[in-house]
């Protein structure tokens, strides 16, 4: 299993890790992929459908797994990297509950991201107020088809709260998580399909829809699905005596403070830097604990033979992570060639 030398050890079996492993194996390198959990797929395993096409997340994962199977990558699940140290020819990757490390001439870190913990936004009462859930909970409900278990057959309305844990100095996350606005629109459409007579609201500060076809989805949500878009950040949440979610928000376009009661509120939780660390590895991190983009220039990336993929560097969509993984694989390949392979 271990004590073998690989050209590349990829830490993390999410979409980024899988893609970079596949690309490098295709170029003839010896690649090991280590994944802490029992299954490959990372955060994608929690999603039902993906924006903007509504394709199944499962399909994306399966496609990558198939390619992985035929690529010759040595895959190790239930294998958690706990530290990484340098040696004369490359790196040792220490594994939890295992004696022998992996050896790699290069390391690709694809450990992904953490989801913002919504309990930190105390005013939303996550885990305290009945009817308050996160966007992650939403995906679970979609996969399990369990909405009626939480909301019954005839809920009156739902709200999606944008920017929970993002663009917020109170929780020290003064950045945009990029993918939540389009996710909220997707989820709003999904729940409207499930409960056509319910009123569905998106409470946003700005709508950041960065990809080509996102704007069309927004219009579709407004025109065909009747989703209401209110420009205002939800502040205080409580339960009414009937158990509904009662909250306050300003419709900033009308300069009007509103008090609304709905059956459910979904918090669009942001992307945060992964908090697990490799104690011996000094990573160049920026103020938000993401890996510093400064190392992404061709000149500096991989000077030490360490490379970073996807959301280790900041919020990204799945599409962007896959593109990034391909790009990084090229850099790893060049590094290996230049360093006497």
């Amino acid at each position: 299993m271990t004590d073998q030398w690989y050209d590349v050890v990829v830490i993390g079996g999410g979409v980024g890790g899988m893609q970079v492993a596949i690309a490098l194996a295709d170029r003839g390198h010896r690649v090991a992929l280590v994944e802490a959990h029992a299954d490959l797929g990372g955060k994608l395993l929690g999603y039902a459908k993906l924006f903007p096409s509504f394709e199944n997340a499962e399909q994306v994962v399966d496609e990558l797994k198939n390619q992985l199977d035929s690529s010759g990558v040595a895959v190790f699940t239930n294998t958690k990297a706990r530290d990484i140290t340098e040696n004369t020819k490359g790196y040792d990757v220490m594994i939890e509950n295992a004696d022998t490390p992996f050896h790699g001439r290069t390391i690709v870190l694809a450990y992904g991201f953490d989801i913002f913990d919504p309990t930190l936004k105390e005013e939303y009462g996550y885990n305290i107020i009945r009817g308050v859930y996160s966007s992650v909970d939403f995906e679970k409900m979609m996969k399990e088809k369990s909405f009626s278990k939480y909301f019954g057959e005839k809920p009156q309305g739902f709200g999606f709260v944008h920017c929970v844990g993002s663009r917020d100095e109170k929780v020290k996350n003064n950045y945009c998580s990029k993918v939540c606005c389009i996710t909220a629109i997707k989820q709003a459409m999904e729940i409207k399909e499930h409960y056509p007579s319910a009123d569905v609201f998106c409470f946003y500060m700005d709508l950041r829809l960065h990809e080509l076809f996102f704007e069309k989805l927004y219009k579709q949500a407004q025109k065909e699905y009747g989703i209401h878009f209110i420009r205002g950040k939800v502040s205080e949440v409580a339960n009414s005596q009937q158990g509904k979610v009662a909250f306050k928000v300003e419709d900033t376009l009308l300069s009007r403070p509103l008090r609304i009661e709905l059956d459910g509120l979904f918090l669009m939780v942001g992307i945060e830097a992964y908090k697990g660390k490799f104690p011996s590895l000094k990573l160049p991190l920026n103020e938000f604990d993401f890996v510093d983009p400064g190392i992404e220039t061709l000149a500096t990336q991989g000077e030490r033979g360490i490379f970073f993929v996807g959301t280790t560097k900041g919020p990204r969509s799945i599409k962007e992570t896959l593109q990034d993984a391909t790009y990084v694989s090229m850099q790893v390949h060049n590094y290996l060639l230049n360093h006497g392979k």
Binding site: C163, R167, M205, D206, R231, G232, K233, V234, S235, E236, K248, V249, E250, D251, T252, S255, P257, L258
Partner: peptide, 22 residues
Amino acid sequence: INCGMCTSVCPAALVYDYDPRV
């Protein structure tokens, strides 16, 4: 950034033609 969180909880905004965000 005009999020409106202030106005949504402002007692004065509720009863006067007033908006702290504005």
